[in-house]
């Protein structure tokens, strides 16, 4: 949108002030995400920039909070670095423990949610499905219902059936919360999918499984993967259900951050936050690549 040559002074002024306003809004969007990165290198236990940091004094920066991620909770944090240190950290450090939990839960949730959600989306995209609207409504509901209600309901239910404070309980809860994203993304991909390709495949003599794996799957794969990533990040980020369902043993990274913010606020949280920002940058890049790829497949290329 270049400024047209006939623009008057008022329009020119508006053109530049509009850009300035937009720049300010972009700053508002991105600043809180990037501000945690420099803050996490603070040598002092403060949540703000010290004067030393502002004058780029090397003394004012440190990696102590990153070290703290691995040390906090260790049986003997003072021992020298070596194999025993690693073992101790792997087994005892609280953040390491919650990181292991987070990945373990999120990966299983991703597998479960992606397979269940993709199957359902395949069914939903067929026009023959009876009560389509109602079924879609139920499948999407975990995304709409306020999390606190979901968590409260699951708390009672899982306590009754003996799944409270177990990994199974959290995995089931997160799978329920993650599937709507898979259903929505895969259904969206299926809409642009040319159904005559299925008939063409069958016509050429391929049995249904072959058609599925050789024709349908490669074409909807970008949708399936980005749905899976959504399920992953949903589980990885989720804290309300974990607050209600997990015990000390099952605490995840967001749960640990939650108690960190509420109880003993230390810049270790900022160090963890920085790592999480980098994880989300990686995920975002991955999703963008997928999106471009599927656009290319469908013949839409950036101008």
């Amino acid at each position: 949108m270049a400024l047209p040559p006939y623009a008057g002074p008022g329009e020119t002024l508006w053109y530049y002030s509009f850009r300035f306003i937009c720049g300010a809004i972009f700053l508002f969007l991105i600043l809180p995400v990037v501000i945690v990165v420099p803050l996490s290198f603070n040598v002092e236990p403060y949540f703000t920039f010290t004067s030393g940091m502002l004058s780029f004094d090397p003394e004012a920066f440190s990696l102590r909070w990153y070290l703290d991620i691995f040390q906090n909770g260790m049986a003997d944090p003072s021992q020298t670095f070596g194999w025993n240190w690693i073992v101790d950290s792997w087994n005892n450090a609280q953040w390491v423990h919650s990181t292991k939990n987070s990945f373990f839960i999120a990966i299983i949730v991703t597998i479960l949610a992606t397979s269940l959600g993709t199957l359902a989306a395949l069914g939903l995209s067929q026009s023959d499905l009876p009560y389509r609207g109602a079924i879609m409504g139920i499948l999407i509901s975990p995304m709409i219902v306020p999390l606190i209600i979901t968590a409260a309901g699951m708390y009672f239910f899982y306590s009754d059936v003996g799944l409270a404070q177990t990994y199974t309980g959290i995995i089931l809860a997160h799978t329920a919360l993650g599937t709507p994203f898979v259903v929505i993304t895969v259904t969206a991909t299926m809409i642009s999918f040319d159904r005559s390709l299925i008939r063409a495949g069958a016509n050429l003599g391929a049995p249904p499984p072959t058609v599925f794996f050789k024709v349908i799957m490669p074409l909807i794969l970008p949708g399936v993967i980005s749905g899976g990533l959504f399920a992953f990040i949903t589980s990885f980020d989720e804290v309300v259900a974990v607050l209600f369902l997990s015990g000390f043993e099952q605490r995840t990274i967001p749960r640990q951050m939650w108690s960190g913010i509420r109880e003993q606020i230390s810049p270790t949280i900022l160090a963890v936050a920085t790592i999480l920002v980098f994880i989300s940058i990686c995920l975002l890049t991955f999703v963008e690549i997928l999106r471009r790829r599927s656009e290319k497949l469908r013949g839409i290329t950036p101008a």
Binding site: I30, V33, L39, F47, F236, V239, M257, L270, S280, I281
Partner: peptide, 22 residues
């Protein structure tokens, strides 16, 4: 668009922590 999507993909707790710091 990345400026819009990056916050969208970033953990809720990270963003809340950042606002506390700010």
């Amino acid at each position: 668009m990345i400026m819009v999507l990056l916050p969208f993909w970033t953990s809720l707790l990270v963003r809340t922590t950042a606002w506390i710091a700010l």
